Computed example of a mutant assay.
Amino acid sequence: MQVATPLVTVAPSRLKLWSALTSVYILWGSTYLFIHFMTERMPPLYMASLRYIVAGTLLYSYARLTGTPRATRTEWRSAGIIGVLLLTIANGCLTVGLQYIPTGVAALLGGMLPVFLLTLNWVSFGRQRPTNLALAGLVVGLIGIFFLIKPDKMQGTGGFDANLIGASLVTFGNFSWAIGTLLTPRVSLPAPNISSGIQMLVGGGLLLLISLCVEPVTPLSILDAPAKAVGSMFYLVVFGSIIGFSSYAWLARNASPQLLSTYAFVNPVVAMLLGVTFAGEIFSSQSLVGAVIALIGVILITLGRK
């Protein structure tokens, strides 16, 4: 199990840096496909909740067994709030949204996270006006989103209503993820591994409660899950939640924000290629044009950050 590397005073090696980046590029890009596989024949919120409860238990237990101090009540509350924003709301919306739209389109919509970060930091959190280049990127990105969800050309898993529902869920999830991201440095959190474990336990636990209320499941429904769903869930636990998230957390402390943000460009490409290859997804020419426009917008926003 890979864990976040403690902060050190020396610069990280290029090998370690690019190993972590490759992990985030490939593993996080592949999570869209495995979420699709995990929820093909199982309720989405239920499977997502088990993914985070298992991963959170492993991370929290490992951190405590290796001597990481336990979190205070204030730190538990802060990490729990972040977990609800990032995992219960954001990832819950993504998991349900993938029932309606292709994985590649969902990844493209997820790649628009810098748009929400830019806007929220401007109007609320940081009160910092973005540069003209970043504003241009915001406009270009929104145009790309329009082409992505325009119903007459896009080929999803349903008609216009399905496309609109899926895109709306993923977009709202991005909004919640942006709030959680901007809130994180403003609250008191414990050590990284303990914090990640708490976020997953609280976020996954709340997802399970919601699932038990709205989905036809019991706590032991996993015993009836097909092997493909269970295997996909454990892939997401190990490679998406533990290795991928730990790599991202390490990069957040050791790499420049500009370099780290490049995952928003690579994840959609990985997700789209995997979706076409293994899930039989089809993209119209208009959807591909929208994808390119949206990525150009994200690049402009990243280059235009102060």
Rank of each mutant, 00 (worst) to 15 (best):
L212N: 00
T302A: 05
A55W: 06
A11R: 15
A71K: 03
A255D: 03
P44E: 05
G80P: 10
G80V: 09
L148V: 07
L148D: 11
G126Q: 11
P102Y: 04
M42F: 00
L118A: 09
Q286G: 15
S124K: 12
T262E: 14
L220I: 04
Q258T: 11
L27W: 05
L50G: 06
L273I: 07
V298Y: 12
F265M: 08
M112G: 08
V238T: 12
A162R: 01
L164E: 14
G156W: 14
G173F: 04
Y52P: 07
V270N: 09
P226K: 05
S232R: 05
T131H: 12
V276T: 13
W122T: 12
G111V: 01
A255L: 10
S232F: 08
T66Q: 14
L21T: 12
L208S: 01
L274K: 00
I143G: 06
S124D: 11
S49H: 01
F34T: 07
V3Y: 05
N174Y: 05
F34P: 06
L288I: 15
F283R: 09
P190C: 08
N174A: 06
L288N: 10
S61K: 06
F116H: 10
G104M: 09
G159S: 12
L87E: 10
L118E: 11
A294F: 03
A225T: 11
F160A: 09
C213I: 09
E215F: 07
T9F: 09
A63F: 12
M112T: 07
R64I: 15
R51T: 08
L148P: 04
S196Y: 08
G166W: 00
Y263V: 15
T5Y: 00
R253T: 11
A252I: 13
H36F: 15
M200V: 11
V170G: 02
F245V: 09
L33R: 01
G166F: 07
L207D: 03
M200S: 14
I194M: 08
Q199W: 09
R77M: 03
V230G: 01
N163H: 07
T181M: 14
V84I: 15
W76F: 10
G97A: 13
T103D: 07
S211I: 01
Q155K: 13
A136T: 15
V140K: 08
L94F: 10
S19R: 00
W76Y: 11
C213G: 09
E40D: 06
L50E: 10
L236P: 04
T66W: 07
V24W: 00
L189V: 10
A178G: 12
T72C: 01
L108S: 00
L50I: 12
L295I: 15
S221N: 01
F278D: 03
G56H: 05
M38A: 08
R70M: 04
A48D: 01
V3F: 09
A71E: 14
P44I: 02
P69R: 04
G83I: 13
T277E: 05
M200W: 10
G290C: 11
A71Q: 08
P114A: 11
P6N: 11
A106F: 05
T218P: 02
V84G: 05
L260C: 05
I89Q: 04
